[in-house]
Structure formats: C-alpha cells, structure tokens
C-alpha cells in the first residue's frame, strides 16, 4: 500500500484565491437573500408582511417590530410536538437507511456476482418511480400489514432510498482496489473490509447520503398525510400546512415554521462538513 497523505483543505495550488472569494461571497448572497427575507417575515405579523411589499422601502427587510410571536404561537401548538416526532422519525430513518444503503452499495460496487447489473437497474428504477404514484397502493399494503398509524409506518418508506445507494456506489467505485486486496490478503471478511477500509475513506459520501435520506424524510408530506390519522404521530410539515385554512393563511407562522424546519438540516450539514468533510479517500490511507 502506498501512502499518500493528502489533506483536502482545498489548498488547491497556491494561497487564498481572491477571485474565488469574491465570487463565493456574491453567489452565496444570491442564494441567501431570499431566505433572509423569509426569516425577517417569520419575525413579524402577517399583515406587516403585506404592508411592506410595495412600493420599495426599507421596511421590506426592516420590520417595524421584531418579535418571536410567530414562533411562540407555532411551538405552543401541535407544531412543537410534531417537530419532535419528525426528528425521531428522521433519526431512525437515517440510521436504518444508511446501513441498508452502505451494504447494498458495497455489494454493487465491489463484489462480483451474477445479476449485479439487473439489481443495480432495479435500484435505479426504484428511485425513478414517483412516490406520489405509489402512495395510495402502498398505504393499502401498510393497512394490510397493520402499519397504519404506527411510528414504523412513518419510518419505513424513507429507509428505502435508491439515490443513497447510487451515490455511495459511485463513491465506492472510486476507492482503489488495492485497498481491498491488501485487506483480503490479510484474511479480512467482506464485512470487515467494508467497515475498516471503505467506510473510513467515505466520510463525505456517507454524510451526503445521510443528508439525502434525512431531507427525503424530513420533507415528506403526502405519506404521513395518508398513512397516519392519530394526532400524536403528526409530523412537522403537516402541522405547518395547517397555517392555511379554507379562507385565509397565517403567513407569519408559515415562514416561522419553514425557518424552524430549515434549521435542522442546515445545522446537520454544518456538523457533517466539520466532522466528515476530511475523511476523503486520500487522507484515509495511512
């Protein structure tokens, strides 16, 4: 095994790139300004949002009064509990989903066996099927299986994430075969090769897949809507949708809820970047 100690600190050739810095700042502003406006709107009453729309005035981003009433109202109602349910559902989904996906991706990328391509094709097809198209048949299956109105009933459809398998497979294909050879010569089992050789060099790919599974589940709406009727199992996006009634909508609460729901994956991404961002292929091989 050759040792190539490389640290991906992005020190791509030379010192700080000022052109890149300026572009990075400008581009991020483009993406963050609308989100910032949403955040400001989450801190003021609905009527204030609409008062400030037109014509252009500083009030569009400087509210007359800043307040967290929207958040208090939201978390004082069923949203608070639903938020926790969503967290629990997503946590379990990511854990199960990652185990399934990592194992399957390893088999599809590294192991040789008959029918491998057919199985990979099935994986690709599985993430192409629009979930909205299978939601009603699936809910009837879940009803037969006694999974309606259960916590696992919320979790299960999210654990099956073909995209996560695909993403990990693409990464595992790039892991040099020399790594595995060295380990198998020492008599390591496939499970051990996967755990001790592949997983340590796949930090970013695994964290990206975790994010894929997480966001897929975190934003799911239609499934919890039709698979669960008990208010105690209500998830956050559904609780949030109820800011819209037949004749009117609480836009302040809608934005507050959207912000609250955005904070979790955004934080998750920051953490994952910090802890796993450096576990790249080069740096893992010591």
């Amino acid at each position: 095994m050759r040792s190539r100690a490389r640290f991906h600190t992005g020190n791509r050739i030379g010192g700080t790139s000022w052109v890149a810095t300026v572009s990075a700042v400008l581009l991020s502003l483009l993406f963050i300004i609308p989100a910032f406006w949403m955040m400001i709107n989450s801190l003021r009453p609905t009527v204030d949002i609409f008062e400030s729309l037109w014509p252009l005035s500083p009030r569009v981003i400087i509210p007359t009064s800043l307040g967290v009433e929207n958040y208090l109202t939201l978390f004082g109602g069923p949203f608070g509990r639903a938020f926790l349910v969503s967290m629990a559902v997503c946590l379990l989904t990511v854990m199960i989903g990652l185990v399934l996906s990592v194992a399957a991706a390893y088999a599809l990328a590294v192991l040789r066996f008959p029918g491998r391509n057919a199985i990979f094709a099935a994986v690709v097809i599985s993430f192409m099927v629009p979930f909205e198209a299978i939601a009603i048949p699936l809910s009837q299956l879940f009803n037969d299986w006694g999974l309606t109105n259960t916590f696992m009933g919320l979790v299960l459809p999210g654990v099956c994430n073909g995209l996560a398998i695909f993403n990990l497979r693409q990464h595992f294909l790039s892991v040099p075969t020399s790594y595995r050879e060295a380990a198998t010569v020492d008599g390591a089992s496939e499970l051990r090769v996967l755990w001790s050789v592949f997983v340590p060099v796949s930090g970013p790919a695994i964290s990206n897949s975790a994010l894929l599974i997480f966001l897929g589940q975190w934003s799911s709406y239609l499934w919890p809507l039709i698979a669960v009727s008990s208010p105690s199992l209500q998830v956050a996006p559904l609780a949030l949708a109820k800011a819209f009634t037949e004749h009117s909508a609480d836009y302040g609460a809608t934005f507050a809820g959207a912000m609250a729901l955005a904070i979790v994956p955004a934080t998750l991404m920051l953490i994952l970047q910090r802890f796993f961002g450096r576990l790249a292929i080069g740096s893992g091989e010591k």
Binding site: F31, W37, M38, A262
Partner: peptide
C-alpha cells in the same frame, strides 16, 4: 473548493434554500 476564507459558511449559505421546505419557499 478553492482556498477561500470561511469556506464552510459560504457553502452552507448556498445550501440553505435546499433545507427550507419547498412548500414554504414556493409560497415565499
């Protein structure tokens, strides 16, 4: 991925729209 100061901050700022529930951002 170039060498720029506070890189992970800029990355997160660009990523944030993806974290906002799409119904919410559509309404906005």
């Amino acid at each position: 991925t170039r060498k720029i100061p506070a890189r992970s901050i800029w990355r997160v700022l660009v990523f944030i729209p993806a974290t906002i529930p799409i119904v919410g951002s559509s309404i906005a």
